[in-house]
Design a protein around this nucleic acid. Structure first.
Lengths: 161, 161
DNA sequence: TATTGTTATACTCTATAACTATA
DNA sequence: TATAGTTATAGAGTATAACAATA
C-alpha cells in the first residue's frame, strides 16, 4: 500500500515544476475526488440521531465557533449560496437552536446567534456524533491515523481556496 | 504545520490501546468529517460540463475499471442502494453510455457494460475533469501533495469498511 | 445603483417500501 | 421462499432567477 506513496512522493520531488506535475496532479485529483465523494456519502448516511441535518449541524457548529453572524457571512463560511443558507437558518430557527436579531446600524442585515439549546447540541454532538468514523479510525493502524492527521490540514486548505 | 503530524504520531505510538485513542480519534473524526463534507460540497459544485452527474460518472468509471456488472453488484461497489443504482443506470442507458444484456444463465439478472461512447467519456473526463482540484493541488507545496498522496489509501480504506 | 435577504422553482442524489419476475 | 430488479414516493441539500427592503 505504501509503495504508491513513495513512488508518488519521489515523482513529485523529482519533477516539482508546474508543468511536470500536471499529469500526476490530475491522477491525484481524480483519486482524491472519488475517495472524498464516497466518504462523504458514507458520512451522510451515518448521521447520528437524524433529527438534525448535516448542513444544519455544520452551520450551527460554525456559529458556535465564530459567534453571531449575518446569513450572508455564514453562507460564505459554509461555502453555500445565500438562498441555501436561508433554508438552513429557517430550520434551525424553527427548533429555537438559533436566534435572530436586527443589525444595530444596518436594517438590511440580520444577526444570527446560537442559542443555549443550540450550543448544547453542538457540544453534545462533538462528543457523541463521531461514532462510525471513530469506530473506523479505531480499526486503522497508528501510522495510518498519523497519515490522516498529517494530511488533514492540507485537506482543509483545499476547501478554503 | 508538520508539528501536528509528529505530535499525533507520537501520541498514537505512546498510547496505541483502544481506550487511550478514543479522545484523539473523536477529534480527528470530527475534523475529518467537516473537511470531507466541505470538500465534497466544493467538488460537487465544480463538476465540469455538467451534462453528467457525479454519481453517474462514478458508476461509469467503475464499469470501465471492473468490466460488466449486474446492477446489484454495481450498487454494492458504489455503496448505494439498488433502487438508487436503477436510476443511475437508467440515465446512463438513455445516453447510450452503457448497454444492457440478459445474464446468460440467470434470467433475473442483467449485465451492464460500458459502451465505446461511455469509455470515451470516462477517459476524456479523467484528463479534463479535475480542473478545480488539480488547480488547487497546483497551489500546494510538493510536500503537501505528498501528504495527500500518502493519506489517500487510508482515505479510500475508510469508505470500504 | 448596490447590497442583503427571501421566495419560487427545480435539479441531483439518496433512501425505504412495495411490487414483479425468476430461481 | 429467496433473490434481482424496478416503481412509487419522499426527503435532504443545493442552485439560479426574480423580488423586496434598505443603503
Amino acid at each position: 500500500m505504501l509503495r504508491d506513496v513513495s513512488d508518488a512522493a519521489g515523482g513529485s520531488a523529482l519533477s516539482s515544476g508546474p508543468v511536470g506535475d500536471t499529469v500526476e496532479d490530475a491522477q491525484l485529483a481524480s483519486s482524491l475526488r472519488i475517495a472524498v465523494m464516497r466518504l462523504a456519502r458514507r458520512l451522510r448516511a451515518e448521521r447520528s440521531d437524524g433529527t438534525l441535518g448535516l448542513s444544519q449541524l455544520s452551520a450551527l457548529s460554525t456559529l458556535e465557533r465564530h459567534g453571531p453572524l449575518s446569513p450572508t457571512a455564514l453562507a460564505e463560511l459554509e461555502r453555500i449560496q445565500p438562498p441555501s443558507m436561508t433554508r438552513v437558518i429557517a430550520a434551525l430557527e424553527e427548533r429555537r437552536l438559533v436566534g435572530r436579531e436586527p443589525h444595530p446600524s444596518d436594517r438590511r442585515q440580520a444577526v444570527i446567534a446560537i442559542s443555549d439549546a443550540g450550543r448544547q447540541i453542538v457540544l453534545e454532538d462533538r462528543r457523541r456524533r463521531q461514532a462510525w468514523l471513530a469506530r473506523s479510525l479505531d480499526d486503522l493502524a497508528a501510522d495510518e491515523r498519523a497519515l490522516l492527521e498529517a494530511a488533514l490540514p492540507v485537506l482543509e486548505r483545499l476547501s478554503e481556496v
